[in-house]
Design a protein around this nucleic acid. Structure first.
Lengths: 208, 208
DNA sequence: AAGAAAACCCCTGTTTTCCGGGATTTTTTT
DNA sequence: AAAAAAATCCCGGAAAACAGGGGTTTTCTT
């Protein structure tokens, strides 16, 4: 019996998943949680699952961070990412941080079951569209999502709001030079050469 | 018997919705479609539903445009929007274009049933979080999503890629002045004063 | 306690965008 | 066929962002 827990904040989606998983008698959904905090708590207190089906976009933490954290503490739990995003950096970051599978939400139900069985066999599972997305970008150039600091994020948000460097400096009580440094660092981390692209990418990766 | 069709590109979600709607015996799901084109075709050929449950983000057309089109041809079909977005302009645009209800995807199953019954009674239904989102923005200032032209969209995408005005002009074989005009118009339509904000908003409203 | 990373600060010159006016020609839509 | 909307082009001055160097002080992490 494979014990599975579902981490997903859309009840309707949870309903659908459970329904699909019910058709496979070797799978047993032992719990579902709508945010990162409650899963972490459940893992401490309750029975461990074999597999976690995890939505990448949760209300409290990003699936990427949650995966890292869970894998650090419980390395034998397999994690399958469930996502609407087929951007390479998102996929790549999830896999790098310990996910064993990546399934897009537009996948058919049986893909999920296949994914669970595959990762239980110790292999990696990527759904068809994910594989497509990954192969189009050549191996070595695969970029992960840049890790940005608190401050950078803060500044990114203000830029997104349309504030200028001067306004940001005033609001945060720091010098305009500092703001420009952060701008520079952001551009470098994202590998682009103007803030507009940074904002676009950040929005894409849901960092805003 | 209320005839319902579901327009949603995530099979798992469809599964969940059907499952929930099955619990109400007065509701009958007569079909489901994964994109805009197939619904429009089905409406021409098949039996009309009373209510359409429609995802706002479809692979081919935006839910906003699809709603407009369906309402133009079949004004008595009630449309309930299903969405992950709680941005005011998105909600506002849907309602303005004829949707009778707006339910966020993190809603509980019974909210959907309530929504269907409410719109069948001729009233408008908004889920709790939607109402929250709307009331925080003051009535008169409610902005709809700007309607941008083909060319503007094209330019917006190039800006998002990080190209400068000169590069865009070269690529599209038009003068830099033209590009600047488009830039200006975009900023005006979105009500902001730099292109970065335009890109951010466009990303938010899924116009990119 | 060291070392690394983050956050902070500073400068100058160049490029690009923004703002404020215009105007003409194609397309669509009615 | 007329009217409206979109797309095109033009200018000059002001404001902001970018590029590319430099450096110090906190704050994590090991």
């Amino acid at each position: 019996m494979i014990k599975v827990i579902v981490v997903e904040d859309h009840p309707i989606m949870v309903e659908g998943l459970k329904n699909i998983l019910r058709t496979d008698l070797t799978i047993n959904v032992i719990g579902d949680y709508g945010n990162g905090k409650s899963v972490l708590q459940a893992l401490e207190e309750k029975d461990h699952p074999d597999v976690i089906l995890m939505d990448v976009n949760l209300p409290d933490v990003s699936g990427i961070n949650l995966t890292t954290e869970i894998k650090k503490k419980y390395e034998d739990i397999k994690i399958i990412a469930l996502s609407v995003h087929d951007e390479q950096p998102v996929i790549h970051s999830m896999l790098q941080n310990g996910a064993s599978g990546y399934v897009l939400k537009n996948a058919l139900g049986n893909e999920i079951i296949k994914a669970i069985n595959t990762v239980m066999d110790g292999e990696e599972y990527l759904c068809t569209s994910t594989r497509e997305a990954l192969k189009s970008a050549d191996q070595d150039l695969l970029k992960a999502i840049p890790r940005i600091t608190r401050r950078e994020k803060e500044i990114l948000q203000l830029i997104g709001k349309g504030l200028t460097t001067i306004q940001i400096a005033e609001q945060l009580f720091i010098s305009t030079h500092t703001v420009e440094s952060h701008r520079k660092n952001l551009m470098e981390k994202f590998g682009v050469n103007n803030t507009t692209s940074v904002v676009k990418l950040a929005a894409e990766y849901k960092l805003l």
